[in-house]
Amino acid sequence: MARSNRERTEATRQALLDAARVLFVSRGYGETSTPDVCAAGGITRGALYHHFADKRDLFRHVLAEEAAAVAAEIEAAAPEGLEGAEALIAGAQAYLDAMTVPGRTRLLLIEGPAVLGWREALALDEAHAARTLRDGLDAAGVGRHGGVAGALAPLLSAAFDRAALEIEAGADAARVRGAVLWLLRQVLGQGPGPD
């Protein structure tokens, strides 16, 4: 069966994104050129510039795919109907699991802010994982009085990001995960003090 123009266009775009992701992870943004991406994807430079304005735009789309994948994993782990606190804890664990995909931490937490700038990287996070965290805090009833959840969400997000970086750097993953869960239980008013 012949593929439609739309299917071919999407296949070309995805081949570029996939090739770019591999190169951005293995070489970094600065050491990856658009000719490298085209060669790796078997796509012409004209096709690349048909889909993306430049290398930075391509990088932005790679990051958007990564951020959407993280949010999807969080949402799958914390489906509708799950009690708020349970959903928040399941979502936190899913975030840490999602960040163990090779290269993801580097892309989203190191290269992303460096290449796109803090504001754009933050906006990308806000549209994906940070949104799921804020929704989880709301569902768990955290800070309903006094607007604490709005201020707490970015602080917890930073803690989760740091945990992902620690795990990526070789820290004891079980210990880091345990610390994140302890922190969440404190926020939820469910846990004892630290050991």
Rank of each mutant, 00 (worst) to 15 (best):
A159H: 13
V115K: 08
D54H: 05
K55L: 04
V115R: 08
L152T: 07
L122N: 15
A163H: 04
L116W: 06
G146R: 00
D125L: 02
V142C: 05
G147Y: 05
G42R: 00
V115T: 11
G143Y: 14
G41L: 01
A53Y: 01
L137Y: 12
A130Q: 13
A169W: 07
A121L: 00
A127K: 05
R56W: 02
I110T: 15
L122T: 14
A173T: 11
H61K: 08
L96C: 05
G146L: 02
R45S: 14
A163V: 05
A114T: 14
L58C: 05
V142Q: 05
L82K: 11
A67I: 02
A98V: 01
F52P: 03
V70G: 11
E126V: 06
E66P: 14
T100A: 12
D161R: 14
H51Q: 02
V148T: 10
I167P: 07
R106G: 14
A171H: 13
A87H: 01
G136Y: 07
F160P: 00
D135V: 08
A127R: 06
E80Y: 03
R144E: 15
R134Y: 12
H128F: 01
P79Y: 12
A171L: 07
L107W: 07
E83V: 09
L137R: 10
A169Q: 13
V62N: 04
E111C: 06
P113S: 09
E65H: 13
L63H: 07
D125Y: 11
A53D: 11
R106Y: 15
A163Y: 10
W118Q: 15
H145P: 08
A76R: 15
G150Y: 09
A40I: 04
L109Y: 14
A127Y: 07
E168G: 07
V148Y: 14
A164K: 00
G150Q: 02
A130G: 05
L116N: 09
Y49T: 02
G46Y: 01
G146H: 06
R177A: 10
A114Q: 13
A69V: 00
E73F: 07
E86T: 13
A163P: 07
I167K: 08
D54E: 04
S157Q: 10
A127S: 13
R104G: 12
E126G: 15
R177I: 12
A174Y: 01
E126K: 09
A69N: 07
T44M: 06
L122I: 03
G117F: 08
A149Q: 11
I167M: 10
P113L: 04
L133W: 13
L109F: 15
R144Q: 15
K55T: 03
A169Y: 09
R45W: 09
R175K: 10
E75G: 09
G91T: 06
L124P: 06
G141R: 02
G42D: 10
H128A: 11
R175V: 14
E86F: 10
A90D: 08
E73K: 13
G103D: 04
G81W: 01
A76Y: 10
R56S: 13
A171Y: 12
L107T: 03
A78F: 12
D135M: 04
D135C: 00
R131F: 08
A85W: 01
L109T: 12
G112W: 01
G170N: 03
D135S: 03
A153D: 03
G84A: 11
G84D: 02
A78R: 10
H50D: 09
L124K: 00
R104H: 06
D161F: 02
G117M: 05
P154G: 12
G141V: 02
T100N: 04
G46Q: 12
G112N: 03
G112M: 02
E75W: 06
